[in-house]
Simulated assay, not measured.
Amino acid sequence: MATGRTDPERRDRIIDAALDVIVDVGVAGLSHRKVAARAGVPLGSMTYHFSGMDQLLHEAFTRFSGTIVAVFEDHLGAANTPEEARAAVTDLVHHLSSGNQRELILTHELYTLAAREPAFRELTRTWMGRSRRALEWHFDPATARQLDALIEGLSIHRALETEPHDRALTAEAVARVTAAPGPRPA
């Protein structure tokens, strides 16, 4: 393996390896040694490239959340009408829950970490903000916030159920959230 100076992709490989190790053993089982072995780099590369485990976790989860935001943007960017936007949200729920265990595990590991560590809450808030901005291409901010929660909840439910609901149920939920608002309670 090349040295750090002649191996410009080493840092990226370490970040990718950290995500892979998290999928295998969770954040609780993550160690510099496991990540270095997975990345195929000397153990000393860990402290050369990262000040500690928190920096590595932050960068790994930032990369992961960026990939999920890109999925939001791809689905929603293709929509041109309100009907297409609702269909894109339905597609998004089904894409996020379609059996990609890696994404599901990483999402839950990040949520658990953010629940315990305030520094990671900011990362999840940034992620949610970016997702909502993509939703706001088609929906007002309050509806975008509700849709974001619906997408997260339905994706989790569909991924964890033994008999996930079909697309029609998702489309109905999206239609209800995006329907014209009624009078607000006093």
Rank of each mutant, 00 (worst) to 15 (best):
A119N: 05
T81L: 09
L123P: 00
R145F: 08
A85C: 12
R102P: 01
R121N: 05
L96N: 03
E103Y: 08
A119G: 10
L92H: 10
L106C: 03
N80P: 01
G99P: 00
L123F: 15
T126D: 14
T124W: 05
A142K: 12
V71P: 01
V71G: 01
V89K: 01
H138R: 11
N100H: 11
F72Q: 02
N100D: 11
L135T: 05
T81K: 00
P118H: 07
L96P: 08
G77L: 09
F139H: 14
A78M: 13
M128K: 06
I105S: 00
D91Y: 14
P118F: 13
E117A: 14
A114I: 09
R121F: 14
E103R: 00
T112I: 03
I105T: 07
R145I: 02
D74F: 10
R132W: 02
E73I: 03
S98G: 15
E73F: 02
Y111T: 09
L113G: 07
P141C: 04
R125I: 04
E103T: 02
R116E: 06
L123A: 15
A79H: 06
W127Y: 10
L104E: 03
L76A: 07
S131K: 09
D140S: 04
R121G: 15
R102F: 01
A142Y: 10
A142F: 09
A142R: 04
H75Y: 11
T107V: 00
R133G: 02
H94Y: 09
P118C: 08
L135D: 02
F120N: 07
T90K: 10
Y111R: 12
N80M: 00
L104I: 03
S98T: 05
T143V: 10
A119L: 11
M128T: 01
V71N: 04
N100R: 12
A144T: 13
F72R: 04
D91Q: 09
S97Y: 05
A78Q: 07
P82S: 02
T124L: 10
A142M: 07
R132E: 05
